[in-house]
């Protein structure tokens, strides 16, 4: 193993890690806002990938351009899911935790079934997109362009999210609702509206990730499952509720995955991620940046 191979795989790991962060940040945002873990998060990603695929197939819109459209579509989906399902799951007087897990898990199964019904179980891909299959060479290291673009989008999205939460009225309403959902009603903030917009925003972020993923990954009804698992680990590793934690968690997960792939067979590459998660929470039970 040469130094070059190591640097090469760490560089790819970093790019992939930023994408993992982008996939996970919506989950972290929603959790931070209202303590709900969305078990249909992977299916949101799957749907965004299909949206990108169909925009490409029927309207020849490149994933680069359709990313905002996928994000918009997912925004609507997220808000609707909150208003139709999650809002009622949170009203449960008993077992709120389990009710919301299984309400969103049921939704995930429905979405997978719908995808099979309407899109069939075939593996799809977006061939010949502008960036697909192309690489750039930076100081002798080859970086795949779709992942590089994805990483840049992820950084931009995190920057935008930071400004959004800290600099806008809605961002402040989001923070206030998360601090005390009861008290915000007194200052005229509609809790349900904030939550719905929070779900929309969280889903839009995973929509963005899905559009990028579609340009270099196969698209099929069950594609969300494996990424969802990585997203949960990313969020927990960073610390539940911390948006910055999801960003850092994603980078750690990407780098650990790449490092594991260097020493273990590829089929075992996730073992490294899982082991690092356990190691981190055994030392810091609230993840890297979780609040106590």
């Amino acid at each position: 193993m040469t130094a070059e191979t190591i640097i090469q795989s760490l560089a790819s790991g970093l790019l992939m890690g930023l994408l993992y962060g982008l996939i996970a940040v919506g989950l972290a945002l929603i959790f931070g806002l209202m303590d709900v873990v969305n078990f249909a998060h992977g299916e949101f990603l799957m749907l965004a990938m299909y949206v990108t695929f169909f925009l490409f197939t029927f309207f020849a819109i490149d994933p680069l351009l359709s990313a905002p459209l996928a994000a918009a579509a997912l925004f609507v989906l997220g808000a609707v899911v909150y208003l139709v399902i999650v809002r009622f799951a949170m009203r449960a007087k008993a077992n709120v935790g389990m009710v919301q897990i299984f309400a969103t898990f049921g939704l995930a199964i429905v979405m997978r079934g719908l995808a099979q019904l309407f899109f069939t179980a075939d593996y799809r891909s977006v061939p010949n997109s502008w960036l697909g299959g192309k690489t750039v060479s930076v100081a002798g290291i080859f970086l795949p362009q779709p992942q590089l673009f994805g990483a840049l989008v992820a950084i931009a999205a995190f920057g935008g999210l930071y400004l959004f939460i800290n600099r806008t009225d809605f961002g402040r309403a989001l923070e206030a609702t998360r601090e005390d959902p009861g008290a915000v009603a007194l200052v005229g903030i509609d809790k349900n509206r904030v939550f719905a917009l929070g779900w929309g925003l969280g889903a839009a972020l995973v929509g963005l990730a899905g559009a990028i993923m579609a340009s270099f990954f196969y698209i099929y009804p069950d594609v969300g499952a494996s990424f969802a698992l990585i997203a949960y680990v990313t969020v927990a590793l960073g610390g539940f509720g911390s948006v910055f934690g999801a960003f850092a968690g994603g980078i750690v997960v990407g780098l650990v995955e790449a490092t594991t792939a260097l020493v273990l067979p590829p089929s075992l590459k996730s073992v490294g991620i899982y082991a690092v998660y356990l190691l981190v929470v055994f030392i810091r039970p609230r993840g890297l940046f979780g609040s106590m």
Binding site: K93, A103, G106, L107, I109, R112, G113
Partner: peptide, 24 residues
């Protein structure tokens, strides 16, 4: 049929029971 209708029915059932009878 392999078209996923069973998943749709099954998933809907889970959502409905979870929401309608949170205590089981």
């Amino acid at each position: 049929s392999g078209r996923g209708v069973d998943l749709i029915v099954y998933g809907t059932l889970i959502v409905v029971i979870a929401l309608a009878r949170p205590e089981g």
